[in-house]
Design a protein around this nucleic acid. Structure first.
Length: 814
DNA sequence: AGCACGCCGACT
DNA sequence: GTCGGCGTGCTC
């Protein structure tokens, strides 16, 4: 008797044992997908992780219904990687599976199918099951696997579905994914077949509708002028000359085609491939250091100051890897900030380059998945979920902007740090890895210092351009000298004025959304709290509403105090909207734009503003941390941080590190070409160590400072942190559960390892109360021992059924 | 996770 | 009298 261990897409511990039917004995392999029954009538797509002969003793396994793949879909390396993730981050394999696979590769009973819009089905070519399914779908739009069982034998269901998906007749309905739908842009084109027709003939056809004729001609003109340049629909309608009905008639007549492209693929390049530029001397040195490290099997931290040309070096290493016949994974924190690297790689690799990120539709994901599986892609640019692609022979993994916190978002499960995981993935594939950043995380820097990573430093800007100069401005002193307007010192406004005169652009960083942090009643001190969360709501003047930044709830701004009915409501806490308003008042002549999540919410708002800045139509850009990423413009020379202290006063042991990273990153936008970059930092504490060290701009010293602090107060990289969060709708229950958890942990672990339980800093989010316990565990051998004890504690906790409704989230290395 | 079973409160 | 809340148990 042969059995198989199967991962199911459920948040349950471990794998499940199924019996392999004799007919499948020859076919089944580890890494294949199988269809299995679970809990009565449910069907899931599982993954085989093990095939063995050990009959389970305490239950009777069910049989595998069918095998879905001819060949394993998941490489062994990935299975090992999943196992590592599950053990290291204390999460279930099922969660990883769910996160890793595009949904149409893991059909389950609740997966809904639908007919693709506007398809004509050729029934002649369909086999009987396929026909049944199409007919059923014609009657009702959505149908799920359980329902299909009524008319197709279980065994054949998935085969039928897959074949119809391949024929492009049906698709998987994305109920949840709808929200994240990739942004698409409408384009227009005139088909070749139309172009071949005789033009006067077409014009005669359109004689009776002159507007259509005009529209057709204008599209034709654009298309003939720049045959490679796609024509945006919005571009045609922007001038307001045409109505959409006219376009509609043209497309009905088959003269003009409307089609859609992914926003990220706008730059899709179809021209000839480009050779790489030569490396500069300092880049050559860095590259040879990388080569030497790789030769000894050591991965690299590439610490390159802003504009030092890390990208050049990446490109060089990518090319080497590809020419060895291996593929490359290039990780980015977010897909939107990729213009330069994407353009350059696209020119070089054309069709052998793929993108994989959270915003793709399921269909697009499967496409990339398939290509990676077939080894058609040499280079994949992607966000953290690209770690799970079925690479065949990975040779190099690059993690760009390795310090970026987007590599470990706290809100999506499973919780893992993509930067650390990338190193493990590389190792399982026998690939090398480069972590790159202008401001490495303290942990990574420490690894390099310890020699676990090779430290490669690029301290020179490309073209030997000077680094920006920092100026610390004592705000208190300026106030005393009455040289202050609102949140700006005269020194700063004069400098801005000066830059404006020289037609240079200015960036102002203020990392706080909205207009005001707090709306407060002057008479009784009442402040407006979110009804779902334990946080004050932020006032957004632009949209004139109160927003909760944690649950997204919106409310109207109160006109009077609900408690004492006083109309004396005041706002406190400066947000970016206020800074924007102020600067607009001080410089009424200047063109000023604001860039933050709230102002960039509209479709293409980001692209539009990007273009505007690039064209030099914007003088001053006011924004949150968003402006520190991906905006490389030549004419920015001045960066102002009016309220820099706000960056430091955050309840987070990484606050100083993050402040340093943010300030350095945004400063990197200044003087990239001219070398005359200047950064003005207004602060009440000009003598604060962090500001002083930033001003000195000597990175070794600042990292030593951070490391010293971390060592003193026992934080990573000197200890391992595990944060346990317990959540429930009822506060009392959450509190009791956390006390109970604390007492169990204290049974097994030394007292000094356990902090809490205590209320989380934000004690309620989305109606759930939160308590937390922070574990500070020693590194090294002891760590795995202690971690097992933590697991044991969890098991003990779970034995008490009363607390089973408590949600538990565990962050390892948080 | 998700689903069924079972036990107690506010409604036609 | 029932509908529906969620606590509990179980899934190969």
């Amino acid at each position: 008797m042969t059995f198989a261990q199967i991962i199911l897409p459920l948040n349950l511990k471990g794998t499940f044992t199924y019996k392999v039917p004799d007919v499948y004995l020859d076919e089944i392999e580890v890494g294949m997908r199988v269809l299995v029954p679970f809990r009565g009538k449910k069907i899931y797509t599982g993954i085989v992780t093990e095939i063995h002969q050990n009959a389970p003793e305490i239950f009777i396994p069910k049989e595998i219904i069918s095998i879905l793949d001819e060949f394993p879909i998941l490489p062994n390396e990935q299975i090992r990687f999943w196992n590592w993730l599950s053990e290291y981050y204390l999460c279930n394999l099922g969660e990883i599976y769910r996160f890793a696979f595009p949904s149409s590769l893991k059909l389950e009973s609740e997966t809904y199918l639908k007919l693709k819009p506007n398809v004509t089905v050729d029934f002649e070519l369909l086999e009987v099951n396929e026909m049944y399914l199409i007919q059923a779908l014609e009657v009702r739009q959505l149908i799920n696997l359980t329902e299909i069982e009524a008319f197709i034998p279980k065994k054949d269901i998935v085969k039928t579905i897959n074949s119809l998906i391949d024929l492009k007749y049906i698709e998987v309905d994305e109920k949840i994914a709808e929200k994240y739908k990739a942004k698409e842009v409408a384009y227009l084109k005139i088909e070749d077949s139309v172009l071949k027709r005789n033009l006067p003939e077409i014009l005669v056809e359109l004689k009776r509708s002159p507007k259509q004729q005009e529209l057709f001609l204008s599209i034709l003109e654009k298309q003939t002028e720049h045959p490679e340049k796609p024509i945006r629909k919005s571009e045609i309608f922007a001038e307001g000359n045409y109505a959409s009905t006219q376009l509609k008639s043209l497309s009905e007549k088959g003269l003009v085609q409307e089609y859609y492209l992914q926003k990220d693929r706008l730059e899709a390049y179809s021209g000839e491939m480009e050779e790489l530029e030569k490396l500069t001397d300092s880049q050559l040195v860095a590259k040879s250091e990388i080569d030497a490290a790789f030769a000894t099997g050591k991965n690299v931290l590439l610490h390159g100051v802003t504009s030092s040309g890390k990208t050049h070096i990446y490109l060089e290493k990518i090319q080497e890897t590809v020419s060895e016949g291996k593929s490359v994974l290039f990780l980015l924190p977010e897909i939107s900030l990729t213009k330069q690297i994407v353009q350059r790689l696209e020119k070089k690799y054309g069709k052998q380059l793929g993108f994989y990120h959270q915003k793709l539709t399921d269909f697009e994901r499967v496409e990339v998945w398939r290509k990676v599986k077939n080894n058609e892609l040499k280079v994949v640019i992607g966000t953290r979920n690209a770690l799970f692609l079925p690479f065949q022979s990975l040779g190099l993994v690059i993690v760009d902007e390795e310090h970026d916190s987007m590599y470990r978002p706290r809100e999506v499960s499973p919780y893992f740090n993509a930067k650390d995981s990338a190193l493990v993935l590389a190792k399982t594939y026998g690939a090398m890895a480069i972590l790159g950043s202008a401001t490495p995380s303290v942990e990574t820097y420490y690894l390099a210092k310890k020699g676990k990573l090779q430290y490669v430093y690029l301290g020179e800007r490309f073209g030997n351009v000077k680094l920006p100069e920092y100026q610390l401005i004592d705000f208190k002193e300026a106030q005393d000298l009455k040289r202050v307007t609102g949140n700006f010192t005269t020194e700063v406004t004069e400098e801005i004025q000066n830059e404006l005169h020289q037609k240079k652009q200015i960036m102002i960083l203020h990392n706080r959304r909205g207009y005001a942090n707090v709306v407060e009643c002057e008479s009784c001190g009442y402040v407006h709290y979110c009804s779902n969360c334990d946080v004050v709501m932020t006032y957004h003047k632009f949209s004139d509403e109160m927003k909760c930044h944690y649950c997204g709830q919106k409310a109207t701004k109160p006109k009077f105090c609900p408690k004492c009915h006083s109309e004396n409501l005041n706002v406190r806490g400066v947000g970016v909207e206020q800074i924007f308003e102020e600067i607009s008042r001080i410089f009424p002549e200047a063109e000023i734009d604001r860039m933050d999540v709230d102002s960039m919410r509209k479709k293409f708002a980001y692209e539009k503003l990007y273009e505007k800045i690039e064209n030099g139509e914007t003088d001053i850009i006011v924004g949150t941390q968003m402006i520190s990423k991906g905006l490389d413009f030549d004419d920015i020379e001045l960066v102002v941080i009016p309220k820099a202290d706000a960056l430091l006063y955050v309840q987070d042991f990484r606050a100083e590190e993050k402040a340093y990273q943010l300030i350095t990153q945004v400063s990197g936008r200044a003087g990239r070409i001219s070398g005359k970059g200047k950064v003005m930092i207004q602060t009440y504490n000009p003598h604060h160590t962090v500001f002083q060290l930033i001003k000195e701009n000597y990175s070794l010293k600042i990292y030593d400072h951070f490391l010293e602090e971390r060592r003193k107060f026992l934080y990573p990289p000197f200890v391992k942190l595990i944060l346990i969060e317990l959540k429930h709708r009822r506060e009392e229950k959450t509190n009791r559960a956390s006390q109970f958890m604390g007492s169990i942990l204290r049974k097994y672990l030394p007292e000094e390892c356990i902090l809490g339980p205590e209320k989380s800093p934000i004690s309620k989010i989305n109606l759930l109360y939160q308590y937390q316990i922070l574990l500070k565990l020693p590194k090294g051998k002891k760590y795995s021992e202690y971690k097992n004890l933590v697991l044991k504690s969890f098991e003990e906790f779970d034995e008490l059924p009363a607390y089973r409704s408590i949600k538990r989230i565990v962050f390892v290395d948080f």
